Measured scan of single mutants.
Amino acid sequence: TEEYEYTDEQQAREAAREWREKGYTVTIEEHNGRWRVKTG
Rank of each mutant, 00 (worst) to 15 (best):
Q10P: 05
Y24G: 02
H31Q: 09
T1M: 13
R17A: 12
H31P: 01
G40Q: 15
E5T: 09
W35E: 00
N32A: 07
R34H: 09
V37M: 04
G33Q: 04
W35P: 00
G23D: 02
E3S: 11
E9L: 12
T25V: 12
K22P: 00
K22D: 03
E21L: 11
E3I: 15
A16F: 06
E21Q: 10
E29S: 11
R20P: 01
Q11F: 06
E21R: 10
T25L: 11
G33P: 00
R36L: 15
Y24E: 03
Y6G: 02
G33D: 04
V37A: 01
V26Y: 02
R36W: 15
Q11R: 08
Y4M: 09
E2Q: 14
G33V: 01
G40I: 15
E29W: 13
Y6K: 01
E18R: 13
E5N: 06
R17D: 09
E29P: 00
K22E: 04
R17F: 07
R20Y: 09
W19D: 01
I28H: 01
W35R: 00
E29A: 07
T27A: 07
R17Q: 11
G23S: 02
E30L: 12
T25I: 13
D8R: 04
G40R: 14
V26Q: 00
R20K: 10
V37L: 09
Q11M: 11
W19V: 02
R36T: 15
Q11D: 12
W19K: 04
H31M: 09
G33S: 04
E30Q: 11
T39F: 15
E18C: 12
E5G: 05
R13K: 11
R34A: 10
G23V: 01
A16W: 05
T25A: 09
T27F: 09
T39G: 05
H31T: 08
V37D: 00
T1V: 13
E2P: 09
T39Q: 06
W19F: 12
A15C: 08
G33H: 12
W35T: 00
R36M: 14
E18Y: 15
R13Q: 12
R17G: 05
E2H: 14
Q10R: 11
H31Y: 12
A16G: 05
R13W: 10
E2K: 14
V37Q: 00
Y24A: 04
A15D: 03
K38P: 02
V37E: 00
N32L: 07
R20W: 09
E14A: 12
Y6V: 02
E14G: 05
Y4D: 05
K22T: 03
A12R: 00
E14Q: 11
H31N: 09
T7V: 11
E2G: 14
E3Y: 15
T39L: 15
E21F: 06
D8L: 05
D8F: 05
E29Y: 15
A12S: 02
G33F: 03
G23H: 02
G23Y: 02
T25S: 11
T27R: 06
W35F: 07
E14N: 10
E3L: 12
T27D: 06
T39W: 15
E29R: 08
W35S: 00
E30K: 10
K38G: 04
N32Y: 06
T7Y: 11
A12Q: 00
E18I: 14
A15L: 05
E29M: 09
K22Y: 05
G40L: 14
A12M: 03
T39Y: 12
N32W: 04
Q11W: 05
T27V: 12
E21I: 08
I28W: 03
Y24R: 04
Q11K: 09
E5L: 11
R34Q: 08
R36E: 05
T7W: 12
R17N: 10
T25H: 13
T7H: 10
W35I: 02
V37I: 11
D8G: 04
A16V: 08
A16T: 03
E9K: 05
K38N: 09
E9R: 05
K38F: 10
R13P: 00
T27H: 09
A12W: 01
Q11H: 08
T1P: 13
E21Y: 06
G40D: 13
R17L: 08
T7G: 11
E30M: 12
